[in-house]
Amino acid sequence: MRVNDVGGMEGFGALSVSESDPPFHADWEAHVHALVSALVRRGVFALDEFRDTIERMPPTDYLETSYYERWFRATTTLLRERGLLSADAPADG
């Protein structure tokens, strides 16, 4: 079982529900979302590959990173695997 398969698990504590709950906590999160959309549309990687890359993160890394940090790390991992990125950004594996 992969770490993302959390349905029914215990130990994640209480919900944090705020009044406004904007989708993005910071502008970079929206940029990561847009970047992933563009890369998938262009066929640089497939959505399934992207999800798989998030889900195969080491469990401790998965649990210690925020939602869009995972997205960013998976994106840079896939771009590096394809030789499309040299920038010094975090990646997995």
Partner: peptide, 14 residues
């Protein structure tokens, strides 16, 4: 785009 709580482990698990 979905709200942060929807993506949280707490909501998804519980």
């Amino acid at each position: 785009p979905s709200p942060p709580w929807y993506k949280s482990e707490a909501y998804r698990s519980r």
